[in-house]
Design a protein around this nucleic acid. Structure first.
Lengths: 203, 203
DNA sequence: GAAAGTTGATTAACAGTGTTAAGTTGTGCG
DNA sequence: CGCACAACTTAACACTGTTAATCAACTTTC
């Protein structure tokens, strides 16, 4: 056996995913691209879902690194939260194919993300939650349940990128301007002293 | 030929979609369920995407009806906007399979929604836009570009239902409470006098 | 060192998918 | 009647994920 064929197959799958998109990613293609027969994949992964879930897990880690780095470069909860939002949106457009398998999989198409890998996915949300809690502690944010508020912000961010990636956002709306407005809106919704400015510059 | 086989096939497809979900909806199943051979579908639809797009169009109409009805029962832009948001969320959970093909299709998997059918999809967003513009006229809402603000709210709503339908929202968060908070948050973000209350009752 | 067992990979096959080409059947019409 | 056209079907292609059976090579054991 290859030194670590599992690793090779994952790398091949990732490369194919990024190059051709999820819908054109098949077990047979991964295998032939790696120079093996299709059934070899089943010696290292239970099934396609298992393979994809491993890629998702890797994506969650990469997202966590980028989110952490973004937050570390900002100071103060509001700025840190804004940095997290921007990093999330940036990750989604820079890794669209990754984002699709990570967050845009309908549950009946792909088996539920396994619990043992769920921890890594949750860390990303906790980054938001902790920042919000910190802001509440310093009095910069309104009171509330940080976990719920983090979920709300996440929903907002996800909705924006999901519609964007699906090509559903009207072409007249500039992407970067919309993203910037979304970040402002998301953060200002939590602030004690509202910093909402009319979003006239958009479109 | 059947009086209108096209109509029969669409009804069969819709029934199968709701009963078994999009991932288990195949041309062959639709055909056999309707009592015809698979290739018959291609006499009435160019391909599977064409058939799905027709279902999507119907879904857009149904959504429009429910949104319109909800807005008509409320008075004043803020309440009307809240009613629109609630109706949108309600539609999504009550017609999850429909919602999936309407808004959760990745663009590379399903061909782009055809322009001639796009009009019906846009009407729904215009309902939000017009309500926002009305609220700005009466001074209830902050100034801004209504179309962009409507898109923001839509993103927020879509993100919430998309994550919910994908089973990604933490089980500890009550769905209805989250939805209620999202509606409040979406509307209050536009108001001149903020009505934000701490969302403590959640979870 | 020969026999047995294990590991890593393969080929063949099944049941399913969307879709096209060719063939069949029935109806209206000149 | 015979022609034409319309509605529909059968056969086939090129895929898909996945399982069972097989084969070759290396390890272990006697």
């Amino acid at each position: 056996m290859e030194a670590d064929l599992r690793r090779v197959l994952l790398d091949t799958a990732r490369r194919l995913l990024v190059r051709e998109g999820y819908s054109r990613l098949s077990m047979r293609k991964i295998a032939s691209e790696a120079g093996y027969s299709a059934t070899s994949l089943y010696l290292h992964f239970a099934n396609k879902d298992d393979l994809i879930h491993t890629l998702v897990e890797e994506g969650m880690e990469r997202l966590f690194e980028q989110l952490s780095a973004a937050r570390a470069q900002a100071t103060g909860a509001p700025d840190q939260l804004a940095a997290l939002c921007r990093a999330y949106l940036d990750f989604a457009v820079a890794n669209a194919e990754y984002y699709e398998i990570m967050f845009m999989q309908r549950s009946d198409e792909l088996a539920r993300f396994p619990t043992e890998k769920y921890r890594k996915a949750r860390r990303n949300l906790e980054l938001f939650r902790d920042t919000i809690a910190e802001g509440q502690g310093s009095g910069a944010f309104q009171p509330g349940v940080p976990f719920v508020q983090a979920t709300s912000i996440w929903s907002f961010l996800h909705g924006t990128v999901a519609l964007h990636l699906a090509g559903r956002i009207d072409a007249r709306i500039d992407r970067d301007a919309l993203f910037a407005s979304v970040v402002t809106l998301a953060v200002s919704g939590l602030r004690t002293t509202s910093h909402l400015e009319p979003n006239a510059p958009l479109s």
